[in-house]
Every structure is written in structure tokens, then in C-alpha cells.
Simulated assay, not measured.
Amino acid sequence: MPKTRRCRYPNCHAMVTFPDHYCQQHYEHEAEYLASRQRWARGNDKQYTHKYNTVTRYRNEDKRQQYNFYRTRQWSHLRQQVLERDHYLCAYCKVQGVIKPAKTVDHVRPLELFYNDGASIENLSVICGSCHTLKTKWEQRYYGSGKGNTPTGNKPVDDIRTINRMMRS
């Protein structure tokens, strides 16, 4: 006896034989369903993810060292300490008088340019998504960090209040 299953169409209780997913009445949805499964499989393919993490993402030797730092036990402990120290609240919003929850821990001085300050708890702060986007754009202008930029040689700014004012102007 062949293997059977229910039609995938909502509220249709007809039985279909493997490898089909839809009954004869709803067969026009079969191609669409198979295409969506292929898209999902492509996005969740371990070989693709492995290639991205080992080849594409780590082409630049400096970035490889930076990404490896974020995988260490030291970073996970530092991150947790900072989150608890700042009570899961964005430090940049707090300077403006706004209380906003956040889970991202960011380096005040970018790790890319100041690698020796990477493990310093004084160089870490909690930041929300919108502030992180603004700060990243500011860092690219001020420090020259990021892909394709050249370092500007500006002196580091450590005060969150000053950084907040500069990134919002």
C-alpha cells in the first residue's frame, strides 16, 4: 500500500500519495509550495552558511581576528557583565533622558581601530538598534572605520554624552 498524507490546502481533508503535497482539486499550489521549500532549504543550508562564515566573511585578516574575539568565552562574560551593569538600558538614549531597553553591547571606541581596548569593560556600553545604526555611521565618518574607508587618525572620544551629541548633529 502506498504512503499517503493529507492535502496541505487549509481545511481540505483529501488524502494524497507521496511525493505529492496537494490533492487533484488543489494541485495548482504544488509548484508554489515546492519553490518555497527550495528557498527555505537554500537559506538554511549548512554548507552555504559554513562557506559564508569561513570564506566570505573572513577574507580580511583584520576582520577575522575581530570576529574571532566575539566568539570567545571572555566576550560572552564581558557582554553579560555590561548588560547587568547598565540594567539592559541603552546608554545613548539614557543621556537624552529616554529609557529604552536594549540587548546589544557596543564598543565606545571601535574594535576595528582600537583592538587593544576590546576586552576593557570601560570601553563597552549597552546600545539600542536605532542608536547603534547612528553610531556606526558616525564612526565611519569620524574614525574612517568600515569597509573601503581609510582611518582618519582622529583622537578617540570616550564620553558617551559627547558621542551622542556628535552622532545626532
Rank of each mutant, 00 (worst) to 15 (best):
C131Y: 00
D159P: 00
G153H: 01
Y67N: 09
V95E: 11
A102H: 06
N154G: 05
L124C: 08
L34N: 15
H132V: 04
Q47W: 11
L124R: 10
M167S: 05
N60F: 11
T152P: 07
L111A: 06
Y143T: 05
G129H: 04
G43F: 13
L134T: 11
Y9R: 04
N44M: 08
Q24E: 14
K63P: 01
T72A: 01
K135F: 10
M166A: 06
T104Q: 12
P101A: 09
Y92D: 08
T49G: 05
R168E: 10
R57L: 12
Q38P: 00
D20C: 03
P156W: 03
Q38E: 15
Y142C: 11
K137W: 11
S125Y: 04
Y92I: 04
W40M: 09
V82N: 00
N68S: 12
E32T: 14
K3E: 08
H13M: 12
K155V: 04
D106F: 00
Y70W: 07
Y67T: 09
G153A: 01
A31S: 11
K94E: 06
H29L: 13
K135M: 07
F18I: 08
A14H: 09
R165A: 15
C128G: 02
T56L: 03
V105P: 09
R85K: 14
V16S: 03
Y115Q: 05
L89C: 02
S120C: 10
T56P: 00
E84G: 04
R6V: 01
L89V: 09
Y22V: 03
T4P: 02
Q66E: 13
A41V: 00
I127C: 15
P151E: 02
W40S: 10
P101G: 07
R8A: 12
R73T: 12
C90H: 06
D106Y: 04
Y70T: 02
D159T: 06
T17C: 13
K155T: 11
G144R: 11
Y115N: 02
